[in-house]
Structures are given as C-alpha cells and as structure tokens.
Design a protein around this nucleic acid. Sequence first.
DNA 1: CGGCTGTACTG
DNA 2: CAGTACA
DNA 3: GCCG
Length: 602
Amino acid sequence: MTLDFPVIFLLPTNLGADELHELEEQIPTLTYDINEAEVILGNVHRKQRVLFELRKHKLVTEEISTTETDEPTSPSLKRRRFQTPGSVITEDSDTASDGDFHPLLTQSTQSTLKAAPTTVKVVKLAWFTESLKAGTVLPIEDYTLYRGRKQQSKPAKLQQASPAKAANIIKRALADPKPSSHGSRPGSSHSTTSHGRRDHFITKAPALLHMTTSEHEVELPPIPAYLHTTYACQRPAPTHPPNEPFIEELTKIRTARTLLGDKIGVRAYSSAIAALISYPYLLQSAFEVARLPGCGLKIAQLYQEFREQGELQEAKEDESDPRLAVLKLFHEIWGVAETTAREFYNKGWRDLDDIIEYGWDTLTRVQQIGVKYYDEFQQKIPRAEVESIANIILEHANKIHPGFQMVIVGGYRRGKLASGDVDVVLSHPDKAATRGFVEQIVVALEQSNYITHTLILSTANTERGQEPVAWKGNEKKSGTGFDTLDKALVVWQDPHWTTGEKKNPNPHRRVDIIISPWKTAGCAVLGWTSGTTFQRDLRRYCKKERSLKFDSSGIRSRADGTWVDFESGPNGEPAPDMLTAERRVFEGLGLEWRPPEERCTG
DNA sequence: CGGCTGTACTG
DNA sequence: CAGTACA
DNA sequence: GCCG
C-alpha cells in the first residue's frame, strides 16, 4: 500500500541522524530540492521557526492568508486533487507528483529548475507520521503551519549570472546519480538512492565548469552511503586513497592557510580533504567532487584545474612564496605556532640562526628545546623504534606497579610506517595505580636517562567536573569520580650506544605518555588514535547528534553534565581491556567501529 | 548569517 | 589572558 | 569554504 502523498521536502531540523534517515526511507515522494516540494515537512511547531527555515533554504514565498484560498496563480497549471477522503489539499503543479518520471522532463528541466509548484505548505511532522499510522493521507489543514506562494524569481538567466547559483544547480544535479546507471565502476551497479527519490536532473552540463564531450556520457558512480554524512568519524579513511595526488595539492593550500592563521580556511580544506580521502573511486569530473560533503564550488573548480594542469596554481604560488617558507620553518619549531612564527618573521629573522643569535633569550623554555632539537624532531621514527620506546615505558610502568596495559596510539596505530612522535596510552585496572602516576613514570624514566627534557607535564586533576555545588557533591558517585587523564610530553633519547663516540649519537625523540584511569581508557585510546579531522568531527557529532561532550578523558551529557559510561559492561563490570573499551565507546556513541588504519582523515 | 573540537599548561 | 599543544 |  503506497499512500498518495504530495511531493515532500523534509527539514532535517530537530531530527536526529537516525530519525532523519528513517523518515527519508518512509517518504515515497521525497525530494531533496525544496523548490520541487508541494509540502515541506518538519519537526517544527511555530510559524516563526518556519519562516526561519524557509529563509535558510533560500525559498522566497509570500504568505497566503488563511482566509484566502490557494487558487493557483499561474494560469496554465493543472490542478490536482489528492483523493484523500475529506482532504482539502489542492495543489497546483505542472509536474506529475505521482511518482512516474516523464520523458518530457529531459527537455524542459535542464536549463534551470524544473517548473515547480507555485504554492507550498509547511506542515508538522505529525501529519506524515499519523497518516502512516492511519494508513491514509490525513487532512493536511490541521497540521499546516504556513502556506506560501512562491515568488516567481527564477528566470533562466540566473544560472548564468551567478556562478554560485549555477554551482548549486550542479551540486543538486549530481546529488542524484541516475538509478539507471549501468556504470562499469565498482559499486555503481546498485543505486544507493532508490527510495523514491526522483531525479529530474540529467547529466547535462550547466555551463559553469566546462565539460568535454566525453564527460556527457560519464555515469558517475553512486556516492557510498557513508559519504552522505558530514562527519568524518562516520567514514572509513584509508592511508592511501585513490585520489591522493589531488589531495596532496589541497593539503598544500591548507598548509598555507595554517601559516597565515586562517583557522576557518584550514577547517574548510580539512573537511574537503577528509571527504576526498574517503571517496573510493578515481575522480573523473568536477561534478563528482561538488556532490561530496565539504566540497563545493571552490573545491570542484580546483579539481577541474588539477585535472587539466596536474597541479594547482595556488598551491604552486604558496610553495614558492619565500615568506611562507620562513613561516613554515618557524612553525615547525616545537612551541611555535603561527602567531609567534609571524612575530619572528616581523622581527626580520629568516632562519634558525637568526633566532639563536638575536632572540635566544626571548624564547620560552620549550621553544629553546624546540630550536635545539629542530633537526632531530623533524626526523621520522621507524615503527620498530616506536615499539622499542613504548616497551621501555611499559617496563618502567610495571616495575613501579605491575599490571599496566599499554596501547601505542597516534600515527603508529593508524599504520604509518614512520611517525613524527611516539604516543602511548597507559592504564591500569586498579584505580589507585593511575592516580598521580604520570609523575612517577617520568621520574623513573629520567633516572634511567631516557627522558632528557619534560616539555609539558599535565596533571589534569581529580577535581575536573568540580561543580559549583561541590559542597553537596562530596558524596558524588562516592569515589568513582573521574580523576586524572594525565600526560607527559617529553623529549626522549636512548642512553645506550655502542659505536664508541663520546657523545650519544641517538636522535632525540618526541614522546607523549598518556595515563588514563581504567574507566575512560576507551575514550583515551579513541581520542589519541585518530587524526585531527576525525577528532573534530567526532566531537561535533557528539554535540550535534547526541548532545554529548566528548574528550579523551571521558564523555558527559550536555544536558546535565553527568558522566556517561559506555565502557563498563552490563553489570557495571570494567572492560576487560583497553581495545574492548574503545569498541564500546564507538558502539555507545552509535558509530560504526573503524580499524585505526581507516581513521586517516588527514 | 552564524558556526566550525575540547582541554590544559605556560608565561 | 593569549598562545600553544595534543589527537 | 561549506553547512544548516
């Protein structure tokens, strides 16, 4: 039984990701183009909110007062009446909304938007859900929040006039790969966009990006389901994606943005890069790029340039910019970021010797260390050495207090053949063992002459989550409070050498030692394994989709600040080991577990 | 048009 | 407080 | 720079 719904656009507002997806599956007449919609369905209840949503979606309408009838304004449009018992729904539309695709569309639609219905209703979600329950399309009036007449403001020239608009059209066109696609590329045989989604757009080119003749025939592979999300933590991100060369070019631009202190630009490029890393096919066209999350007109144009030129002008200019080269050099000093790098540059310094000669005394302690070991810190650490360093740390830990477990995290765990530093997470099932342990282990390793310097010792403390209501919270969770996720960022040098030099020839290494209480070891491992973009998106996902606050020392509810434990078993028994704990965190957050090698978001 | 990760140390 | 670090 |  398929109910005869009008063409519906679904507002994602106030819907969880799962909810949204479920509804999308249920709506037989779903459109992803708000302009096509006869009915806009949303989990909203006030007209004010409706107006906001319409503005947001750039749908310009003029309200139809409730007394007015929604008689069509355009003369030529046919009227359709839904055969719902008692329904007063009338729609004017020149498009068939009963779900069959008319060949004539290919003629009339390509130039701009297809002729859309001229009025639209914004309706409470309950109308749809209750209709489903009732097995019939319920009268819509009782649920209608707003009726509007669309402004006839879409002349065909618009797409010429504004590249941005045209790009939107391209993007929409590409958002719906033809289900009929019999492409030869992997995965293209079964469509992921089957649920009643109507594709009015054909692979004809709106003229913004130049298409070659052959491209007209190219059938784009369907977007893998996981690329319908903007969260990098919901997608596999391999070390070596098929489009690595293009990604490298984008990374150059991102680096320049970093040096210039353009945080938002960095964010934007990082999102685009992360999406491209997850794209499993070799790209063929700019349109294919524009439909990916985080990739818009700009990134699509850059791809176009890359395909034609094999490189990006902007990246090339950045690379040959002498100022950026100096900023990059300075930025690579541990303890120096873009502001200080720029400061140094503005003092007229151009290399490390300038810093040493003219500015040594102005450097902070860690910056001095960063300069001193600049070359050694630039060298990558082979996996075998990472393992050997980690094992020394674990041995020392167990000498202090047997029973420690360790996971080597960071790039090593993601499979990198060589790492910039060594990251280890240590934990112990006994809560008493981890409290204040970071100092002990650092002292022990100093005494064994492995640690030569301590850059940062973080004793993030038992009092975290200390409420303003501490007086009543004394009995809070009676001692199960989260204490320290402590860490030490240190400089390491193997004190043993055999070659007879008087000076230790072993390179200094950057080592991060993280101590986690057992309860949150899963969060610690998850937090310290993934790339930056994965991390950001994980936190953003927790906030927006789960109302949770994630950080590597635990998860809290944003509503009431209470701690959320996904790691313990059903009866509160602690996780058997740190990797199991990590899996439980994924599960608890509603995320598919990914092996570390697939968390290379860049 | 606002938001874009979250936390802790250093000076 | 601004700057830096970590993933 | 992109998303909602």
